[in-house]
Design a protein around this nucleic acid. Structure first.
Lengths: 243, 243
DNA sequence: TCAAAAGTGTTATAGGTACACCCATGT
DNA sequence: ACATGGGTGTACCTATAACACTTTTGA
């Protein structure tokens, strides 16, 4: 291995010709979390071709030459779910030399959290199957996707406390109990109802609506909606949940 | 742009021939922080060639075809400082289409925090100059390196609370006051001496030595050393500083 | 004996925890 | 009327912040 040189100085400075550095590719892989029936799930595809044919895998794609990383991740998310305006977050980049059997491919992992949704019909063009899997029961995955998923689950737990990554996981109008149950699910902790609400009281980003639940066999709950702008500005001032 | 397909299915599935995806490269850039005289500094190089000749930049290099990302980052760090066994952490991957004038190059940013040190003589082979810069006074930087640096400074503030990234920033033997001053510097906060020590009392990873400061014109401080193993296991059980 | 920083103790208060209790609705 | 979950109040207790005080060294 030659002595190191700073980035791209010209072929003659490298023992390895510089064009050899341009024989690699990069992809994005999306860890799309969904929340349903009090359970956290992740969207997996079943691969339709080699390598790892028939294995379940995270949805992902090579990044086009003229495409930003974030755009590529958004494209994958959009193709599968038809959802727009979903906050995504880069998790980590995985680049082991042998992680892809067909060449040097590093992958940038992204994470999203969406309201549980029927899959886009378009989704079927991606792979043999597309399906939500509960986090607690994940099949054997292709490539290093298990490692990517595990890492993303960890990151999710810190992201929900500080970022607006959760802002599309609940319906437009939600109850404080639903809000609480979501955090209990992700963080795997239980909270006291009264104390949880006390922490949230006066949170400027939770708008109480003049509307209540209908057709429930108990006292109907007040409904709330999220003011995403106000959450952003609270966050900018250092706000974070301390659940 | 063609309909998306899962990762690498064969040339015929792509409107863009798959070999076009392998015309990109990736690099690592290292944000090497040092702590000296109560100030946080960062190691920059002055580029010796185009593009951005004479601009200051983060040290970085293309990743060799048979080299892991972490290894590449360690190599850069090692070349510049001759230091080994320094914890590094991946920060973020930057991949805007036009971020590098000579082609599609995405870069994976890494962060390290070292005891202030004379630079390795080897360092001069890297660039015109190599120098520590206080993070409060950073010159105009090449590429998108200012963005990378800003992001790393933010990440550092959370990493010092949860990870062992700080474990090589102090001398082998240090005082609790030095320990406090380091955190005050990075977090840009001041702490009460008594309360700070109370929080640390009983921390199993701080070993009190049978040794004191010498030749100080005041009561000499007890010296401590870090038990990195014990810190790791505390961290594994969920420990984090709550400064 | 003085300056300077180490190191410990004390107290008031804020915030968290646990829990009890009432409320509104469908059956 | 009662079961069910919504919603609120209180009392205790602990963690923290602010500050005062004693200790040990070199000059």
């Amino acid at each position: 291995m030659p002595a190191s040189r700073s980035l791209i100085q010209g072929d003659d400075m490298y023992a390895i010709p510089i064009r050899d550095f341009f024989k690699s590719a990069f992809s994005v892989d999306c860890v799309i979390f969904g929340y349903h029936a009090g359970e956290l799930k992740v969207l997996l595809i079943q691969r339709g071709s080699e390598p790892f044919e028939n294995f379940w895998a995270l949805p992902g794609d090579l990044v086009y030459p003229d495409e930003d990383l974030d755009s590529a991740a958004n494209r994958v998310l959009m193709d599968l779910t038809s959802l727009t305006d979903i906050p995504i977050r880069q998790v980590h980049t995985f680049g082991k030399v042998d992680r892809h059997p067909l060449g040097r491919v590093i992958t940038v992992a992204y994470l999203a959290l969406v309201e549980f949704t029927e899959l886009s019909p378009h989704a079927s063009s991606w792979a043999r199957q597309t399906r939500w899997h509960p986090i607690s029961r994940i099949p054997r995955l292709a490539f290093d996707h298990k490692e990517i998923l595990d890492r993303s689950v960890l990151d999710l737990k810190t992201l929900v406390l500080t970022e607006d990554i959760w802002s599309k996981v609940l319906p437009e109008k939600f109850t404080l109990t639903q809000f609480q149950e979501f955090f209990e699910c992700v963080l795997n902790k239980r909270f006291d109802k009264g104390n949880f609400r006390k922490k949230l009281s006066g949170a400027p980003f939770l708008r109480q609506l003049n509307e209540t639940q209908k057709n429930v066999s108990h006292r109907p709950s007040l409904l709330y909606s999220l003011d995403r702008k106000k959450f952003q500005s609270a966050r900018a001032k250092g706000f974070a949940f301390d659940f």
